[in-house]
Simulated scan of single mutants.
Amino acid sequence: MTTVEVWTDINCPFCYLGKARFEEALADFPHRDDVQVVHKSFELDPTLPPGSSGPVVPAIAAKYGITVDQAAANERGIGAQAAAMGLPYQTSGRDMGNSFDMHRLLHYALDQGKQEAMLDALYEGNFAEPEPVFGDTERLVALAVRAGLDENSVRAVLADPDAYADAVRRDEAEAAALGANGVPFFVFDGKYAVSGAQPPEMFTQALTTAWNDRPGPQLLADGDTCGPDGCAVPGSATAQ
């Protein structure tokens, strides 16, 4: 079994693209059924007030010291990358904000066996749909229900600011200890790291490297053997 830990934030468009590129590589990986993927929390801006929301383009312009037009062009460029992968992407009108509650819900969803569906719903809501996802509890509840979570339980988690808060902070502390200062950040079996929305080929290389470096003996040659069903007949696929 190979474990892939992925640190992401819902605010991050390259996390959206990186997930799709990693999944493309994983779909073609011959041992994909023996790969466990765990999504972990990373806030791009943990200083944002809870419940905060605002338009993306002006925020990008202010953060990087560029014009609003340049920031808008940057969004269109990311949208073009998404389109090349068949991913829908809203290049204008998106919002951004505090994502701590989203990360708490992702940990709750992990307990329910629905973390992947919850993350997909959040990405879809933020990048593919025009309605804002930050600072709107009802929208967040709707996305969680879409992912298959129980509405009353989701509301209970959101109403309790301590629910899964420690789990989010542990993930963030672990990311800091690993030296991750941006996302997406992929760690394969705790040994190999890939930063950014890399091409699928890079993820294939990382998966292969981690798989071949698993503890225990590695099979270097495969020949005729005897087993519970008998012994292989030379030159035949049958057993005797």
Rank of each mutant, 00 (worst) to 15 (best):
E75G: 01
E124F: 00
A83M: 02
P130M: 06
M85Y: 05
L110E: 14
F127C: 05
E131I: 00
R94V: 00
A109Y: 08
T137Y: 02
D111Q: 14
E129D: 07
E129P: 00
Q115A: 08
M102L: 15
H107Y: 03
K114S: 10
E129Q: 15
H103L: 07
F134K: 12
D136N: 15
I78S: 01
F100G: 03
P88D: 13
A117N: 08
L87K: 06
L140I: 14
L122V: 12
E75L: 02
A82V: 09
D111A: 15
M118G: 05
Y123Q: 10
N98D: 14
P88F: 10
T137S: 09
G125D: 02
I78G: 05
A82Q: 08
D101Y: 00
A80D: 13
G135P: 15
K114Y: 01
G135D: 13
Q115I: 00
R94S: 12
Y108V: 06
Y89C: 05
A121F: 05
E129F: 00
G93Y: 11
G97F: 10
T91L: 00
L87F: 06
A109I: 06
Q112N: 09
M102D: 04
F127K: 05
E124I: 00
V133G: 07
G125Y: 07
E75F: 00
D101Q: 14
A82L: 06
Y123T: 02
A83G: 05
N126S: 03
T137K: 14
E131C: 00
L110S: 10
R76T: 10
L140R: 12
H103P: 03
V133A: 07
F127N: 07
F134Y: 14
G77H: 10
E131D: 15
S92R: 08
D136H: 15
R104L: 03
R76F: 01
D136G: 01
H107P: 05
S92Y: 04
P132T: 04
P88G: 07
P88H: 11
A128K: 08
D136Y: 04
A80N: 10
G93E: 11
A84R: 10
A83R: 11
G93S: 11
E124L: 07
A80H: 01
A117S: 12
G77Y: 09
M85D: 05
L140D: 01
Y108L: 14
A80F: 01
M118Q: 07
Y89L: 02
G77C: 04
Q115V: 02
A83D: 11
H107M: 08
G125P: 09
F134L: 06
N98R: 15
N126Q: 15
L140P: 08
T137H: 09
D120F: 05
P132V: 01
G79L: 05
D120M: 09
Y89D: 02
G135T: 12
D111S: 15
G86D: 07
G97R: 08
D111V: 01
A80Q: 12
E138M: 05
R104V: 01
L87R: 10
T91D: 12
N98I: 02
E131S: 14
I78E: 09
E138W: 03
D95C: 01
Q115Y: 03
D111I: 06
E124H: 04
A82E: 10
P88A: 13
M85H: 12
E75W: 00
R104W: 03
D95T: 14
T91M: 09
A117G: 03
